[in-house]
C-alpha cells in the first residue's frame, strides 16, 4: 500500500506542484529526491527544504521496552513525603499539574522546585536551570532568596561533616546570586506567548524545569469556551513537545472552581475533563485547617501510584517534611 502525498504535512501549493509533476505517493517522492532534475524542479519554490521532506518521509523508529531507560530522572523536592507519592519527585519529560485553592502552597512548591533543580550532581541532583513563566505575579524573588539561603546553609553544614568528592568548581556556583541567575523568569499574559520558550531554550539549553504559574490566569478574560479550549490544547501540545524533545519537567498550576451539579455545589480544578487527560500527574494541594504551616498533597492522577496523600509543611526555609510531633 502506498502512502498518498496528501497525508504529508505539506502546504497546498507544494502538493499541487508535486501532483503536476506526477508524484502521487511517498515512494515517488523518495525516488524523485535521488533524481536531481526532478528535485530541482519542485525545490525551486523554496517552500520546503530537502531535509524537511526527508524528515517527513522517515518512518518512526520503534523502541522496545527493554531498551528504554527505566530509571527516568526526576526533580526531588525537599519533602520526602511528596517525593514518595510522585515516585522520586517531579518527573522529566512529563507534565505535572498542581491545583488548589489560593494559599494552598502551589507557588511555594513551584519556587522550591526551581531551587531543587539546581542541586549539584555530586549530591545526586540535576544541576540544571529553570524557567518560571509568571502570569499572576506570584514569583517572589524575596522568597526564592530565602529558600536558596536555606539550601546553601544546608550544603555547607553537610560539607563540614567531611563530605568527600566535591570539586571546588561546583561549590563556587553555590551562592545566592549565581543560583538566582539560573532561574529565568518570563512574565506573560497570553498563552500564545509560550512560543517564546523555543528561543529561550536555545539560549539556555541546560533548562530542566519549566513552571507555568498559573496556567489558567491568562484564560480568565476569554469568554468563548471553544476558543479557550483551543488555546489550552495548543499550549499543552507545545509544552508536551518541548518536554519530550529536551527531556525536561513541566509544572502547571491550576485554580479551583465551583461546579453546580445535582449534589449542590462542588469544588473542582478548573479547565474540565479534556484538560485532565492531557496531564500525567495531578496533585491537589490544600491547607490543613487550624494548623499554622501544615499542608496536604493529594495525588489525583498518576501512572505509577494509586490515589494517596502526603503531608508537608512550608517553613521560611521552603517546602519541608512535617515534624514528627505535628503528625
Amino acid at each position: 500500500m502506498n502512502r498518498p502525498i496528501w497525508t504529508l504535512p505539506l502546504s497546498k501549493s507544494m502538493q499541487n506542484k508535486l501532483n503536476k509533476l506526477g508524484i502521487k505517493c511517498c515512494e515517488d517522492l523518495v525516488d524523485s529526491l535521488d533524481d536531481p532534475e526532478l528535485k530541482s524542479k519542485y525545490l525551486r519554490t523554496h517552500l520546503e527544504s530537502e531535509s524537511e521532506i526527508r524528515n517527513m518521509l522517515k518512518p518512526p523508529k520503534p523502541v522496545t521496552a527493554a531498551e528504554l531507560d527505566i530509571e527516568c530522572d526526576s526533580i526531588a523536592t525537599f519533602c520526602k513525603a511528596i517525593d514518595e507519592i510522585l515516585n522520586g519527585g517531579v518527573q522529566l519529560g512529563r507534565i505535572t499539574e498542581l491545583s488548589g485553592a489560593p494559599g494552598s502552597g502551589k507557588s511555594q512548591l513551584c519556587m522550591q522546585l526551581c531551587v531543587s533543580v539546581q542541586i549539584p550532581t555530586c549530591f545526586e541532583g540535576l544541576q540544571s536551570e529553570a524557567i518560571y513563566v509568571d502570569t499572576n505575579s506570584n514569583f517572589s524573588e524575596h522568597r526564592i532568596t530565602e529558600m536558596i539561603n536555606a539550601f546553601v546553609g544546608h550544603v555547607s553544614k553537610s560539607l563540614s561533616n567531611d563530605f568527600k568528592g566535591v570539586d571546588n568548581e561546583t561549590l563556587k556556583c553555590l551562592n545566592t546570586a549565581e543560583m538566582l541567575s539560573k532561574i529565568h523568569r518570563i512574565q506573560m499574559n497570553d498563552l500564545n506567548q509560550l512560543h517564546i520558550l523555543y528561543t529561550t531554550l536555545e539560549r539556555h539549553p541546560n533548562v530542566k524545569l519549566i513552571v507555568v504559574d498559573s496556567f489558567v490566569m491568562p484564560l480568565y478574560p476569554i469568554e468563548n469556551s471553544l476558543k479557550k479550549n483551543t488555546l489550552v490544547h495548543n499550549a499543552i501540545d507545545l509544552l508536551q513537545t518541548i518536554a519530550y524533545k529536551h527531556n525536561l519537567a513541566v509544572v502547571l498550576t491550576n485554580d479551583l472552581t465551583t461546579v453546580v451539579n445535582e449534589n449542590g455545589t462542588e469544588i473542582f480544578p478548573a479547565l474540565g475533563d479534556s484538560f485532565a487527560h492531557r496531564v500525567q500527574f495531578r496533585l491537589l494541594l490544600s491547607k490543613i485547617p487550624n494548623c499554622s504551616d501544615g499542608y496536604t498533597a493529594l495525588l489525583k492522577k498518576s501512572i505509577e501510584h494509586s490515589r494517596c496523600a502526603a503531608r508537608f509543611m512550608i517553613s521560611s526555609d521552603g517546602v519541608r517534611d512535617m515534624l514528627t510531633e505535628q503528625q
Binding site: 518570563i186 512574565q187 506567548q193 509560550l194 512560543h195
Partner: peptide, 13 residues
C-alpha cells in the same frame, strides 16, 4: 509565532 510572542512578552512589562 515565535517573533510575535517575543514582541508580545516584551510589552507585558
Amino acid at each position: 509565532f515565535i517573533e510575535a510572542s517575543k514582541i508580545s512578552t516584551s510589552n507585558v512589562n
